[in-house]
Design a protein around this nucleic acid. Structure first.
Length: 425
RNA sequence: GGAGAGGUGGCCGAGUGGUCGAAGGCGCAGCACUGGAAAUGCUGUAUAGGGGCAACUCUAUCGAGGGUUCGAAUCCCUCCCUCUCCGCCA
């Protein structure tokens, strides 16, 4: 959420920054609302001050022996009543303006960071580095072909269980998924992240706090009879872990690693990535999350990205890092590095992690602050996949496939899987 | 699902109509005492918004919303949540 003071003081700056995202917004109307709201608040509170004085006087008079039914007290009562009525009118008006203001503020995306590269679409993203040697050869299978051949997943039967875009992992596939989750959690924990296993049903306040609501309701699954939604990412429950809290500055940064299944409706993606593990309504993810001191979020961003990259390096999976442009970063993000893993069968890099710094955007929505001396300040939040499990499995399968039909696993994974390769059954 | 109890500051806990943002205690911070510390004493210690260069000041907040009243933590209504017992259940 944007700062309403900024709306009053410098709406042009907001418009200009949102312009970098490709949005054309006019904030004069909103500025007017914000100013009117502030003026109303001033008038209302001074009236209330007057009313408070009147109330106190009545008490004092009666205590001082004045006749509670006498004219002196009656006059004060009358004044109190008049003020009460005036306050009620102002309050009602102010309330309407405030909720209108908040509603609109909640619908604006974050302002891009000054360092975020300019651009309109993903075509303008900037590649910043590559790691590893991509395996290139003719006749390599895509991961869904390998999975099919090795019996790692039930796709068609999953439609019977749920719908399309759900899979059931079987045998070695299920075991590999579990191995990947454990491997990643252990790796991050060894670097000081605290492990979190959050609820996967979250209330709407939590979704609003991290930026999924009100704008992206159609992207999440909702429970019909409760104010509960299936979480689209562990970022949502972890943000709300500290909602409405003040985190002492000496505890920052607070770093969490959270495994959770993630649920997304993928509305509007019909026909894209219909096969395999790339785009599902339900998938597993290990998520990194930081609550950072506001002055240290840039370093934190570099670190969280490095921590996500460490997984790919440990698994010996080639990847590249993109600095997403202003036109491609997500709603809550100020700046984002995407990690794209090499898929040898598809012969392409594919997003496997998104590491974003959100500045105070989520912290303001969720009211998460820290304290320095007497002043409270909003913390900065960061999140990064470390990593998406299904896509990692796809990469492991495609990059490790052998001529004999087996899949050689990355060395680091063998102890978790209990064998160094997947064998045809 | 049935029955009951309760929601007050970082925590515990007092407060049933007036000067109460709220006694007292704990915790925390500063100062004093000490060679240093403990103990002790003193002082301070909520959040948000508005105004002011600042000192400071105004308003709101005692689960949420509404009502009664000149005045509500306190009275009335509605809702939410938590806890305990019983039932059911992984």
């Amino acid at each position: 959420m944007l700062d309403q003071r900024l709306v009053r003081d410098n709406p042009d700056f907001i418009a200009q920054q949102l312009g970098r995202r490709g949005l054309d917004v006019d904030l004069t109307g909103l500025q007017l609302i914000a100013n009117q709201q502030r003026d109303l608040e001033e008038r209302r509170s001074s009236l209330q001050a007057e009313g408070n004085t009147v109330g106190k006087q009545v008490g004092l008079k009666i205590k001082g022996g004045a006749d509670p039914k006498g004219s002196e007290v009656a006059e004060l009562r009358h004044r109190g009543n008049t003020i009460k009525q005036q306050v009620a009118v102002l309050e009602e008006e102010e309330k309407q303006l405030s909720s209108k203001l908040r509603e609109q503020l909640l619908s604006f995306p974050n302002l891009p960071s000054v360092d975020c590269p300019e651009g309109r679409s993903e075509a303008d993203n900037k590649e910043v580095r590559r790691w590893g040697e991509p395996r290139k050869a003719e006749g390599l299978e895509e991961h869904w072909q390998i999975a099919d051949r090795l019996g790692l997943l039930e796709t068609e039967r999953s439609v019977r269980i749920a719908q399309s875009r759900f899979v059931t992992l079987m045998g070695q596939g299920a075991r590999l998924e579990r191995a990947l989750i454990n491997f990643m959690l252990d790796l991050h924990c060894s670097k000081g992240y605290k492990e979190v296993l959050p609820p996967v049903l979250v209330n709407s306040a939590s979704l609003q706090g991290s930026g999924q609501l009100p704008k992206f309701a159609e992207e999440s699954f909702r429970c019909a009879d409760d104010d509960l939604w299936l979480t689209p990412t562990a970022e949502v429950p972890v943000t709300s872990l500290h909602r409405d809290e003040i985190i002492p500055a000496d505890l920052l940064p607070v770093r969490y690693v959270a495994y959770s299944p993630c649920f997304r409706r993928e509305a509007g993606s019909y026909g894209r990535d219909t096969r395999g593990l790339i785009r599902l309504h339900q998938f597993n993810k290990v998520e990194l999350y930081w609550f950072s001191h506001p002055d240290q979020s840039d370093q934190a961003h570099a670190q969280i990205t490095a921590d996500a990259e460490a997984v790919l390096q440990a698994l010996d999976l080639p990847y590249r890092v993109l600095d997403l442009c202003t036109g491609d970063i997500g709603f809550s993000a100020a700046r984002t590095y995407d990690l794209e893993v090499w898929l040898a069968g598809a012969g392409a890099y594919r997003e496997i992690s998104s590491c974003s710094v959100c500045g105070d955007f989520q912290a303001r929505r969720s009211s998460i602050r820290t304290k320095e001396g007497k002043a409270t300040r909003l913390v900065h939040t960061l999140n990064g996949s470390g990593l998406a499990i299904g896509r990692t499995m796809a990469a492991v399968l495609e990059n490790g496939q052998q001529a004999d039909g087996s899949v050689l696993l990355p060395e680091a994974l063998a102890p978790y899987f209990g064998a160094d390769r997947l064998q045809p059954e």
